[in-house]
Amino acid sequence: MLYFNFRADELGRPMTVVDVGANIGALSLPLAVSGHRVLSIEADPNNYACLLAAKRANPGANLLPVNLAATSRFRMVFLESDSAWTQVTDSPASGRSALGMPLVDIIETFEFADADLIKMDIEGSEFSALTAIEPLIANNPDVEFVYESNFEACDFYGHRRQDLARRFEDLGYSLYCFRPQGDLMRYASSLPQGLAIVDMLATKRDMSGVGYAPVVDYDYEWAELEIRKALNRPMEVQQKHALSDLKYCRPALLDSGVWKRAYQAYLKKNPASASGS
């Protein structure tokens, strides 16, 4: 939310925002109440009902909720899990469904192709949602993306968080990581992510002179420390994240005794998980 407020001040006018994975409106509603034009895309019917209730309770909000899933093609999809963790699947086991449309088609259908910012947090479906997005970006080269890079969610769909980052790079974007320290760290798809879940900014601007936050070069020591901490945590998902990112770390670190001990301890506890790494 902080970056959205900063960008609005920077532009000096109401923004046009697309919130992909709006959930119950935690981002969409404050922006819309503040006068920004917001398209809230939410697949989960329960979350969507909350969005509609929020819209009714705030009649002046410039908010357009739509009950759609951003997918790679037009199709009916099913929804697994719930709340903020709803994921799109092809299995009807949950009993909940949604219409899936490519993000570019949703945006054009509801006339939001002039978006200043597109936020994406759809639990691993971000890569698919970017299918055929090139024409939108060609017509609106200044549009920026704020997206969640979630190791486990990407893995659920058979791609890696590096693939998602590379997709943005191929579209001509530079990447920055919103770090907990409050700065923006330059990032690239070939580097360790550090944390299992981070928020990223994809922009064509050099953020170093913008003034939003201190911009720092990629920090290997921070990333490797976070990976080592995750490797030693009891949570399986954190350990898997650390193991997957090991290959992106510096050889000098991988050869160090502390890493070897942590890695061997992981293999001993989780031989099946490590077998493909």
Rank of each mutant, 00 (worst) to 15 (best):
F6L: 00
R7Q: 11
R7C: 12
A8D: 08
T16G: 07
V17I: 15
V17W: 05
V17G: 01
D19H: 05
G21Y: 04
A26S: 15
L31R: 00
H36Y: 08
L39Y: 04
S40Y: 01
A43N: 09
P45I: 05
N46K: 14
A57W: 09
A57T: 01
P59F: 11
P59S: 11
A61E: 00
A61L: 02
N62K: 12
L63K: 01
N67D: 10
L68S: 09
A69W: 08
A69R: 07
V77M: 07
V77W: 05
F78R: 00
E80P: 00
S81D: 14
V88L: 02
S91T: 12
S91M: 08
A93T: 10
S94T: 05
S97M: 02
S97T: 06
A98Y: 07
P102Q: 11
L103A: 02
V104T: 12
V104N: 03
F110V: 03
F112G: 05
A115N: 11
D121Y: 04
E123A: 08
S125T: 10
F127C: 10
S128W: 11
A129Q: 06
A129Y: 13
L130H: 09
E134P: 10
L136Y: 00
I137G: 04
A138F: 03
D142M: 05
F145G: 03
Y147G: 02
E148W: 07
A153D: 11
D163R: 12
L164I: 03
A165L: 08
S174V: 00
Y176K: 00
F178W: 02
R179E: 14
R179M: 03
Q181Y: 03
D183K: 10
D183M: 08
Y187I: 12
A188M: 04
L191T: 00
L195W: 13
L195D: 15
D199K: 06
L201K: 05
A202I: 06
T203N: 12
T203A: 07
K204T: 11
M207V: 13
G209Y: 07
V210S: 04
G211V: 06
A213K: 11
P214I: 06
Y218I: 05
A223D: 12
L225M: 11
I227V: 13
K229W: 15
L231Q: 10
M235F: 00
V237M: 12
K240G: 10
S244M: 06
S244V: 09
L246T: 07
P251H: 14
L253S: 10
D255C: 11
V258N: 09
W259D: 01
A265W: 15
A272L: 13
A274K: 00
